[in-house]
Amino acid sequence: MTLKDIRIGSSAVIKAVGGEGALRLRFLDMGIIPGTRVTVSKAAPLGDPIQLSLRGYSLTMRLSDAEMITVEEEAVK
């Protein structure tokens, strides 16, 4: 399962960070690393990109990039 598949409002824990080159390093630098908890807050009006909440701040990325991040969905409380 990737970050792209997480429904809006749900949270997930990052398992592996894919992508390559600048994109992957950007992920890592922004704190997207294995073990980090991410909440998908919303999608842009045209459906893409998405807004994430992690480490106490908001981050946006495109769905095609979110697809590179393997996650495990958190059980709904």
């Binding site: 600048a22 994109l23 950007r26 990109p49 701040y57 908001s58 981050l59 946006t60 990325m61 495109r62």
Partner: peptide, 12 residues
């Protein structure tokens, strides 16, 4: 070629 990745902070 690859543009700069669009992974951007949304500040408060």
């Amino acid at each position: 070629g690859k543009p700069i990745p669009f992974v951007m902070e949304l500040p408060d």
